[in-house]
Design a protein around this nucleic acid. Sequence first.
DNA 1: GAGTTTGAAACT
DNA 2: CAGTTTCAAACTC
Length: 750
Amino acid sequence: MDVVSPDLNSILPDEIMDTEAIAMEEDPPNEPPAPSVQSEPEPAQVPMEIEVSEIVSLCPATAPTQKTQALTTSTTTDSTLCSISSGTQLIVTSASSAGLKPVASSTTQSSSAVVGQGLPKLSAPLTLPANHQLILSKVAADGKSPGTTVLKQEGQKLLVTGLSKSGQPLVLALPHTWSKPATSQGTGDGKAQPTQFKVVTTGAKPVIGVQAVTSTSQLLGSSTSLQAQQLKTVQITKKTPVSTAGPMITKLIITKALNSKGLTGQAAVQAPMVPGRVLSQTTPLTPPRSIAVGEAVSTPQNISSSSKVAISPLKSPSKLTVVSVASQPPNSPQKSMTLPINVALGQQILTVQQTSTTSPVKAGTSQSTAQAVKPVQTVAIGGTPQFKTIIPLATPPNVQQIQVPGSRFHYVRLVTATTGGSTQHTASPSTNTNPSIQPGKPMMMNTAAVRMSVPIVPAQTVKQVVPKPMTSAAQVVTTSQTQQRLIMPATPLPQIQPNLTNLPPGTVLAPAPGAGNMGYAVLPAQYVTQIPQSAFVTLASSSGFSAPTSIQTQARLPLNGLSAPDTTSRPRKPCNCTKSQCLKLYCDCFANGEFCNNCNCVNCFNNLDHESERLKAIKACLDRNPVAFKPKIGKGKEGESDRRHSKGCNCKKSGCLKNYCECYEAKIMCSSICKCVGCKNFEESPERKTLMHLADAAEVRVQQQTAAKTKLSSQISDLLTRTTPAITSGGGNTESLINLHTKAPPTGSL
DNA sequence: GAGTTTGAAACT
DNA sequence: CAGTTTCAAACTC
């Protein structure tokens, strides 16, 4: 079976991608006792950052709870009440093209969910746990499979899964880490760390960007696409409501730019939102497409129409409002969505806004009257909408469905229409001005060579410009990409159970008992973020989600949660597996939850083409060792000094002073749990100190050389510029000159 | 680059 | 759980 038994859910380590999750232990937030829907956790006290395993499932089959205060004003025929635990409100409204019906959010503090027409068959209740996981998944409209749109945000994760009308799933996964931007740069309040996710697709090249922003009010990325065909921006801002009752706002806006007519989406996006605002930059040429949330299909005419999903969890009464306004031709396929929330990939704008504010939402506050003509509408719940995330979903033409033989996953390839032709490569890099955001960097995926990893180097694929001040300033992300593809496996996500994060990417979980047939897949950020290797740093599945203390950490969690030093910019080494098919833990790629990409392996099955085998292998590994995919190096409370290997090493001949030793490799001391013989990897070991000094010296040497090269290069270039062009023309010797100089610096100085 | 060494992972 | 085998990385030459 490809499917992991439900039991795994409990097994899933919280830190699968995050070794640093351990650090979170410090403040055991008031964890909602039970994920039970009826329990109402106090949102205010639960910081977003906390990795609460709880997941909010929209319209789960389970019995709804807390319907009491739900207020549904949607005129849609199919409205579903979703129970939201912890008083969160969830409102989902979709308006057909014919008539957009405003969705009113219940003012009551209790959670309420409203489902608009666009979401047919939404009989299942929506449950929104206090934790901030939001899962939107849309199921294919084939009619057989229920459609679901799930936004999952676990502290640092955001998953967006959707299936296009054609049944093409779209999944966006954001790692937890994103939600935890570097606090250092942020407000400084460790607890209040808003996270922003940006996904941007532009032009022929869809770009997906994710940003995590510390400040609550921040701008989500905007992307400019030359062709403006697709624009996706997802922004999630988390702010833990502390005593001050800081608002927690999470907005997700998915906008799809219509080829010709769409326009309003842009306007809405650009409209400054206070405190946070989202800027979407789209080329004027092609306005963004209408937003369709729910199954609504936006007719070309409805370009202006936009559907928004606003989710705003309020402290005590957290509210979630999802409004989809899409004009859909009656004929539009995939109208029947069984899932609570349907997001039409094509031409839809989804706005999810999460705000934790004390002020209750007032009914009718949602202004999103689904009028096709109108630009994107934002629904302000519990206050003014502060953050917007705009995710332009690929229009059907832009979405390619990929079928993997034997794979249970639906893969969607988002292809931006290239002006010229195929765009396989993530061409234009995007720059992210704010490094701190990197965790959420936009990621790009290449269909072929896909290494799932988070780019360490900012700016390579997606250009993001974010104002440094994480605090309140809005962040703007601009992406100009030519060719980008996104491949994401999507599966209906009826419910997500806690600890999913432990599962390796691509893991498919069997439906929980009583949850119906719907299982869900774990999508590591890596799925979403595939970038040219050169540009990115591999993100260990678990590590990436951990709350990185520094920007660098965000990029990758090294194997063992090593700290930043290693993570700086080094892509994972390619593996050389020959016999394991890269489906055993021998393979580093596999062990880290990554697909092989640009590796030297033989007969590799660790790729999308062998998803079923891969899933089996994952399951097998988990069977052998439930924590197989957890980082081996845990982080001590005090920091690195306390980090140690979870199992300890068993070295016998290396003295634990070679990289054969996992402890040494992780740059940590052996501990009492190690079973090594002749260990020299302890604090006082002279051998170790010697090695360390040598290593340091070598490192310094390298740095010096690098600096020298850089300096010489700059000097030479400067010299050349000063000299007449004649010299430049004859620059054949330039390189040799440089090389000559570069060698000059004495390497042995140290 | 080929061959050896090493220890984790996998297997019995 | 212990012993053995397999495997791929680390290392040496």
